[in-house]
Computed example of a mutant assay.
Amino acid sequence: MIKKILVLEDDQDILYVVQEVLEYERFLVKGISNCQEVLKLGEEFVPDLFLLDFRLQDGNGGEVCRDLKSHPLFAATPVIIFSAYAQKNIDFSAYGCDGVIEKPFDLDQLIEMVNLLLTKTSV
């Protein structure tokens, strides 16, 4: 069964690259650049994993993660936050995310973490 990933990223170049790489790895990917639409799209798409940028023009990926983790449909869905601020004394675990990837990130590292988290949830 094909796994679905919802990516929240407001940098269109990064969003494009992440979508292309994940689709190449045989995931079904939806990209979005607006924090306000994540829950609505998530309820329609029902992804197996969320990939969220931390700093967004219209919000904070950590807060989106917290909202997702408190939603009954997504409480057990893995969430990865990726951020250029990973070393800035931000406690990402406080948001309830399952993984953090520092920008700029290695695409192999991204795929590895996605596969690891999806394997954990399908057991």
Rank of each mutant, 00 (worst) to 15 (best):
I101C: 01
L6K: 04
L39A: 06
L117T: 03
V79L: 06
V46M: 13
N115D: 13
E23H: 12
F27H: 07
S33Q: 07
E44M: 14
S70T: 14
I111Q: 08
F45I: 08
L107T: 15
G61L: 09
K4S: 04
A84W: 03
I111S: 09
Q19M: 10
L51H: 05
N115M: 14
D10C: 05
A86S: 07
S93Y: 07
V100K: 03
I80E: 00
Q36D: 12
L117Q: 02
A84D: 07
K69F: 00
D98Q: 01
L110P: 03
M1F: 12
A94E: 13
L52F: 05
D53A: 01
D48A: 01
V100E: 03
L22V: 09
E102P: 08
V46S: 11
L22F: 06
F105C: 10
I14E: 05
L15G: 10
L8N: 02
L15S: 09
V123A: 13
L8Y: 02
R55T: 14
G99M: 02
A84S: 08
K120T: 12
P47F: 01
K30D: 10
V79Y: 00
G96Y: 02
D48P: 01
A86C: 05
K103E: 06
P72C: 10
T119H: 11
L28G: 10
E20D: 15
S33N: 08
D10P: 04
A84P: 05
F50R: 04
A76D: 07
